[in-house]
Design a protein around this nucleic acid. Structure first.
Lengths: 192, 192
DNA sequence: ACTATTATATACCGTTCGGTATAGAGGCGT
DNA sequence: ACGCCTCTATACCGAACGGTATATAATAGT
């Protein structure tokens, strides 16, 4: 692994476990086996390192989500596909997933939130788009697209969070059935 | 306002807007109009200040939630009462609410999360208790209490977050009808 | 009046923070 | 052999960090 990758890897590990602000550049460099100027050579600042980390870790996820959110008439299927993208992401890159979603909730003026803001936006727009496209079919959701999209995203991410808390290894596995059940719950409530 | 209260007030404002780690004790003291040793006189450390802030701000909320979560046979009514407690809290202390819920998502090893952990626990237990009590009535939710409780909490907090993002003033108002609709959505899905 | 306790400030501690000036090593084309 | 570009380290910067030793007002009990 080259040094640049190594730095990103260690930074993820540290930001994940203690948070961006609580981790010093010094420590990242030392644990990566490089000196500080090397880190500053690749990423021009601590913030730049965070940005790059997010950018390189999210590309596939966000693109996958946008593709899955392409509504073609089947709401259940579309929601299922989106939930699957979330779940795959959380399975394949659990630390990264956790870091990302914790940053979603940071104070809006903080540096970490500034860095995730574009990703939050893209993710939210993708999910909203589903319900906007579907509102043509389902009159009763008119004007409630935003409520539904946030509700859906909230349901998914809380479910994944629950899986993390259950897991001892830090790794999780989410079956297709679980996702189906979750989407079903969202669409038809807890009684069915 | 006495100095102790003033410090807590300013600390809330600063932690809310930039996060615990990014705010220095110096700044809190200066903006509160006191010197650092005064701050350390009332709260023995920066972390102690955070703990005290959370404790004093949460007591009423958590107690209210535990009371509302007392299941007496009416699931819809119980969920409604709980959601109302969340909403009241968010209305009455928006900054505090936001700070608290952002800390729920911090890295588990970080100092801020250590401080909110007991509150998270109490809150989760209260909501779980509802579904455990209700599972006697509703066979189909057996074994899924945790999923439901996290799903419910997720739905509520995402809804409130949405209200915050819509609001320009930072203050929000959540009507009884909105809460009813939210609980209904949770129980019967988005189609009804 | 004397003493003890509470509440406050000045001035300082060592450490760590994010970031950089400078220089050297290694390959690479000419 | 020379200059150029990429990569890396030593050693340092001023500022800010969390926290404290010490002194002093003010208040209250006796």
């Amino acid at each position: 692994m080259d040094k640049r990758e190594q730095i990103l890897h260690i930074a993820l590990e540290l930001f994940y476990s203690r948070g961006y602000d609580a981790v010093g550049v010094q420590e990242i460099a030392e644990k990566s086996g490089v000196s500080k100027p090397t880190l500053y050579y690749y990423f021009k600042s601590k913030y730049g390192l965070l940005e790059q980390l997010l950018k390189e870790g999210c590309t596939r996820f966000v693109e996958g989500l946008e593709q899955a959110a392409n509504f073609t008439g089947d709401l259940r299927g579309t929601l299922w596909a989106c939930a699957r993208v979330f779940a795959d992401f959380a399975e394949q890159a659990p630390r990264f997933y956790h870091l990302l979603f914790s940053m979603f909730h940071f104070p809006h003026e903080s540096a970490p939130y500034q860095a995730v803001r574009p990703i939050v936006r893209r993710q939210q727009r993708a999910v909203e788009q589903i319900f906007e496209a579907a509102s043509g079919q389902l009159g009763n959701m008119h004007g409630r697209q935003k409520q539904f999209s946030l509700g859906f995203a909230g349901l998914i991410s809380y479910f994944i969070e629950m899986k993390f808390e259950e897991s001892k290894s830090g790794e999780i596995c989410i079956s297709d059935e679980e996702i189906y059940s979750l989407v079903h719950q969202f669409m038809h409530g807890i009684y069915s």
